[in-house]
Amino acid sequence: MRWLLALVLTFSSFSAVAESQFYGELQLGVHGVQHSDLDFYPGFASGSVGVYVRPNIGVELFYDRATSKAREEDFEIEVNEASGIAARFESPSQRGLQAYVLLGYVTYSINQYSTLTSPRQLAKENFTGARISLGLAKTFDRYRNMQLVFEYRNYDVDAPLRVDGFGIGLRVKLL
């Protein structure tokens, strides 16, 4: 229901601001997953599409997919999938450099494999919570519609579990 409400409002925004600029972004990164005094660092790839609904304010949909598992003690973990919607708030550009904040809603699943058993035992759990990202974007001198981005993200859930990560990626302003 929350998804439906957010999507309706988002796409209403899109249609109401037809002159706005769309953008897409691809990132590769490493999640940090911490629980039970264990730290896992599985890899991920992330893609997002969005639209600037005001100068330096955008709304975007994102989707992450695991690229690698990480092992600690007798367990392997991957952040299997993550998806959601977020609002982007960017600072004005200074010499092609912008800071930004993403605030949004994320739903994600974690797969945890026990390597003690054969076949490996899978524990899978879905989480929903807030996505908070802080990042820097540098506009290429030659390609003014492209930016190199560095981002820290945190998928905050009310549980004894911490999921965050660092990503590096490329953002392209489409229109």
Binding site: Y105, I110, E125, A159
Partner: peptide, 13 residues
């Protein structure tokens, strides 16, 4: 909208 039970992950450990 926080949901999810981390015990699925912490209990096996």
């Amino acid at each position: 909208a926080c949901e999810g039970d981390a015990r699925d992950l912490t209990e096996p450990v």
